[in-house]
Amino acid sequence: MKTNNKSYDGVAKFFDFFRAGDMRRWGPDQRALFKNLKGRVLYIGIGTGQEIVNFPPGLDITAVDMSYAMLERSHARVQNYRGKIHRCQMDAQATAFQDNTFDTILTVCVLCSVNQPAICLKELKRVLKPDGELVMFEHVLSKNPVYALILKFMSHVTEYLEGTYLDRDTVGNAERAGFKIHSHKNVYLDIVKALIAKSA
């Protein structure tokens, strides 16, 4: 859970190792999705900054994470980025930003981890400009009952290990928070998704 400081401070040391396989798989899809980042960007849950390598150059990014250990580990990647990244330690569910601040908000595997995804999404809507875009690269509960059963079972394991839930209805949560999904692409089965949402 990149936004839960206690558990993610603990796993920060191993985080890159655990996510290496995912990063190898998702690189091309992330690069395609991140082309939509524009203007002033808020990057929720920077973690160790693994996704930075897939960002287009020249962006003005404010990156937040709850875990100080994660933010520390992102330092080298932030330094190597050909653009501006300003990092803050902050809870995604209650940020310190003013209303209508950002043109784009990016979440990458964060809404599976925050304690209250609906509250987090409402907070993101507050700080996003009315014509801004919420760009999400997230995993959700599958609609296929066999996959869903496996995800629900494994969710107990991942919740215990690092506080990540595999059974979240992120698309539904975004819609309930007042977003309308404009672009919806499956990256792996109907579990890993690249989504773009705007204020409804």
């Binding site: 190792f17 655990f18 996510r19 290496a20 396989g21 995912d22 190898r24 798989r25 998702w26 995993h139 066999v146 996959y147 059963l149 496996i150 995800l151 079972f153 494994m154 792996y188 089965l189 579990i191 890993v192």
Partner: peptide, 16 residues
């Protein structure tokens, strides 16, 4: 296997 080949790509087939 997850760190080497990806979490979901291992989790779903091996679960079945």
């Amino acid at each position: 296997l997850m760190p080497f080949v990806g979490a979901f790509e291992v989790m779903i087939p091996l679960g079945i």
